[in-house]
């Protein structure tokens, strides 16, 4: 079947989200930093919601160990995640303006790379990298909204994953405790719960609903 037109897809979103919310979503720009279990799910949620501009960033390639929880296909093994996810997002939301960067984020390049995005999602897997991104954004890009994820490993209750507002522009999602360093595995559904918390907080910020 032919892909619907831009107008047809926009109208379908308006019918579900309302005219006003869809206008805000369509004019928003969101960066997703890290395209693993958190980031690939976050980006898909935001593309489906009709976010106008997505900026996806990761330096890594799709590995067989990713397939238990990350939104990639076996035939994409070996591809850069930024390319593989770009292709999937374009199938979901063909008119979304997607910028992809195959890059390892460092303190030096973050301010320039993310300066045009309204909201930044931290979706890395390593604790020190999460801290590096959060500290750099809070220090160098203090006007951005920042949504981070920490604590989603293991099979504890999904109900322990929450969204917390740390300060005016900074939110954190997760249970704050479950650490892969403690030998806990990452299970698709629980990682996706945390990703959905991040994506939903982004949508609420876009809707100008800042409470958690």
């Amino acid at each position: 079947m032919a892909v619907p037109t831009r107008e047809e897809m926009y109208h379908a979103l308006e019918e579900r989200h309302g005219v006003e919310l869809q206008r805000k979503l369509a004019s928003a720009g969101v960066a997703v930093c890290g395209l693993g279990g958190l980031g690939s799910n976050i980006a898909i949620h935001l593309a489906r919601a009709g976010v106008g501009r997505l900026h996806i960033l990761d330096f890594d390639r799709v590995d067989i160990s990713n397939l238990n929880r990350q939104q990639y296909f076996p035939e994409q093994l070996g591809e850069y995640k930024s390319d593989a996810l770009y292709d999937t997002l374009k199938r979901i939301a063909p008119y979304c303006d997607i910028r992809r960067d195959c890059v390892k984020l460092t303190e030096d390049i973050i301010p320039e790379l993310l300066c045009n995005d309204d909201i930044i999602c931290e979706a890395f897997d390593k604790a020190d990298q999460k801290a590096m991104l959060v500290n750099t954004v809070l220090e160098k890009l203090p006007d951005k909204y920042l949504v981070s994820g920490s604590g989603m490993a293991g099979i504890s209750s999904a109900n322990s994953i929450i969204t917390r507002r740390v300060s005016r522009h900074f939110y954190i999602c997760g249970d704050s405790e479950s650490d892969v360093a403690d030998g806990l595995g990452l299970v698709s559904a629980r990682v996706a719960v945390c990703a959905a918390h991040e994506a939903h907080m982004v949508i609420r910020i876009i809707a100008e609903e800042y409470d958690v």
């Binding site: 220090e139 479950s178 990452l186």
Partner: peptide, 29 residues
């Protein structure tokens, strides 16, 4: 409510009534 840059952890002194928020990150994503 203001971020403390990492290079100021050693020189930033805490006083009576301060509110410190420490976000600790754990691995997984």
């Amino acid at each position: 409510e203001s971020i403390v840059p990492k290079d100021q952890y050693n020189s930033t002194v805490l006083y009576e009534g301060d509110h410190l928020e420490v976000v600790r990150f754990v691995g997984g994503g």
